[in-house]
Design a protein around this nucleic acid. Structure first.
Lengths: 247, 247
DNA sequence: ATGCAGAAATTGGTTGGACCATTGAACCAC
DNA sequence: GTGGTTCAATGGTCCAACCAATTTCTGCAT
C-alpha cells in the first residue's frame, strides 16, 4: 500500500511549510486520482514522506478540514470530502450574527439574487436534456404537493437544484447549497408557519415555462416573485412568533 | 497587561478541545470588545489560561486563520482581521479550477446577480445620507475618468462598494469583496485590453439616477447592463489573447 | 467452518518541552 | 539625534511520547 505513496510524495523544500504541504498533497491527490470519500495517507506517512513534522502536517490538514475539504475520523483516517485540485481558490465567508431572523432574511436576499440569475442563465443555456430533467423534478414536486396537500421541502429543493445545475455555472449550486445547509433547520420548519411556502407553489411551473421557452427575463421575473412569497411567509412567521412570545 | 486576560479566560472542560478553544476565544473577544486590528493573547498565554497544550491552541488559531478571521505575524503576535462573535456561521467556498478565464467568467456571473440585487435593494432602502455618499463617490470616479482619460479601477471599486453598503445587507459587500480580492489581478489589468471597462462608464450614473429616484427595477436593469459591458470587454480580451498566442 | 469476544495494531487527538526565525523595543556607541 | 546591536517576546517547527477511538486480527467456543 505504501508503494503507491512513495513515488508521488517527494520531500518539500522551503519555508511556508504547511502551505507547501497542502500543495504537495493537492498534487498527490491529483496524481492518484482520488475522489470524495477516498482515504488519503495517514499523518505519520505524510510527515515521513514530506520530511516535515507531524505537527506541520496536522496544521495543514486542519486548514483543509476548516475549509470542508477533508474529514478526519479518529482511529480511522482522513478522508476527502470534496474534489481538491492544485489550482483551487478559497473564499471563506463568515456570517456574523447569522443565527437570528435578520440573518436569515439577509441570506434570503442573497438567494433571491442568485436564484433569479440562475433561472435567467438556465433559460439561455439549458438544452433539451436539462429541461426534461427540470420538468421531471417539477412533476415529482407537484405530485407530492397534491398528494400530501402541501409543500414538500425535499422535492422543492431538488427542483431548484436542477435549475442551478442547468445554469452552467456550478457556483450557483455551491453557494446556495452552503446557505441551505446552514439554515436547513429554518428551511424545514420555519418559525412554525403552517403550510410554509404554499404561496410559492405556482411559481415553480411559471419559472419552468419561461426556461422551456428560453425566456431569460421572464424566468428572472418569476424567480423574483417566488422568493418574494417566501419572504412574505417568513415575515408572517416572525410576526406570529412575536405574538406568541407575548402570551 | 495580563491582569485583563485573567478574568475572562476560564479553563475549558471536555473533548473537542480546539472547538472549545475557539468558543472560549470568541467569548473572550466579545467580553474584551476587541475589534479588527487588535492583538489577542499570545499562544502561550492562551494555552496556560485554557489549560490546554499550545499545539491545541495553534490548531484552533490555524482554523481561524484559514477562515480569514485572524492574521499571525511571527515575532509579533496574532491579530484580529475581522469581527468575530460567538454565534457566527462559516460558509467556506472553494472554486475548483477558478484560475482560468472560464473561472473568471463564472465569478462574474455571480457578481452580476449580486450587483443587480444590491442596486435594487439600494434603490429601496438608501436614505439621503447614503445617496449623497454614493454620489460623492460617483463624482470622484467621473472626475478621475475625465482627467486620466480612462476608467480608474480604484475609484470605480469605491463607487460599487458604497452601493453595496447602502443595500443594508453586509453580505453583498462581503461576497463580492472576496471575489474581488481573489481576482484583483484580473480586475486591475485584465487580459491586456486597453481602456478596459470604458464602455461601462455611463451606466454608473444611470444606476445612481435610479437609486436616487428609488426605482429598484431600473437600478437592477442598469446594473445588468453594466456587468454585460464588462463581460463583453472580457470576451474581447480573451479573443485578443488567443490571437496573440497564434503569432 | 462459524461466530463472536477480546487482544493488538492503526490512526487521529493531545501533551510537554525544546529549539529556530522573525519582530520590535531597549540600549549603546558615535 | 542617528544608526547599529542586543535581547526578550512571539509565532513556526520539531520531537517523542501517550491518549482515545476505530479497525483488524486472533483464538476460543460452538
Amino acid at each position: 500500500m505504501n508503494s503507491g505513496v512513495t513515488d508521488s510524495l517527494p520531500p518539500i523544500q522551503t519555508t511556508a511549510r504547511d502551505d507547501a504541504v497542502l500543495k504537495a498533497l493537492a498534487s498527490f491527490v491529483r496524481q492518484e486520482a482520488l475522489g470524495p470519500g477516498e482515504k488519503l495517507p495517514t499523518e505519520r506517512i505524510l510527515a515521513e514522506r514530506l520530511k516535515v513534522s507531524r505537527n506541520t502536517v496536522r496544521e495543514a490538514l486542519t486548514r483543509w478540514e476548516g475549509l470542508g475539504l477533508v474529514e478526519r475520523r479518529q482511529g480511522s483516517g482522513t478522508y476527502l470530502k470534496a474534489a481538491v485540485s492544485p489550482d483551487m481558490l478559497h473564499m471563506p465567508l463568515t456570517l456574523a450574527g447569522g443565527n437570528d431572523f435578520a440573518g436569515l432574511m439577509r441570506t434570503l436576499e442573497i438567494r433571491r439574487a442568485l436564484e433569479a440569475e440562475a433561472a435567467a442563465l438556465c433559460a439561455i443555456r439549458a438544452g433539451k436534456a436539462e429541461i426534461a430533467e427540470i420538468e421531471r423534478k417539477l412533476d415529482i414536486m407537484e405530485e407530492a404537493f397534491h398528494t400530501r396537500a402541501g409543500m414538500s421541502s425535499e422535492e422543492d429543493w431538488e427542483f431548484h437544484q436542477s435549475v442551478y445545475r442547468a445554469s452552467g455555472n456550478p457556483l450557483f449550486e455551491q453557494i446556495i447549497s452552503a446557505m441551505h445547509e446552514l439554515f436547513h433547520r429554518f428551511w424545514e420548519h420555519p418559525l412554525g408557519v403552517r403550510d410554509f411556502g404554499h404561496a410559492s407553489f405556482p411559481y415553480h411551473r411559471t419559472i419552468f415555462d419561461c426556461i422551456a421557452a428560453h425566456d431569460p427575463d421572464g424566468a428572472r421575473r418569476e424567480a423574483l416573485k417566488l422568493i418574494a412569497t417566501v419572504e412574505n411567509d417568513l415575515k408572517r412567521g416572525a410576526a406570529n412568533l412575536k405574538l406568541s412570545d407575548r402570551k
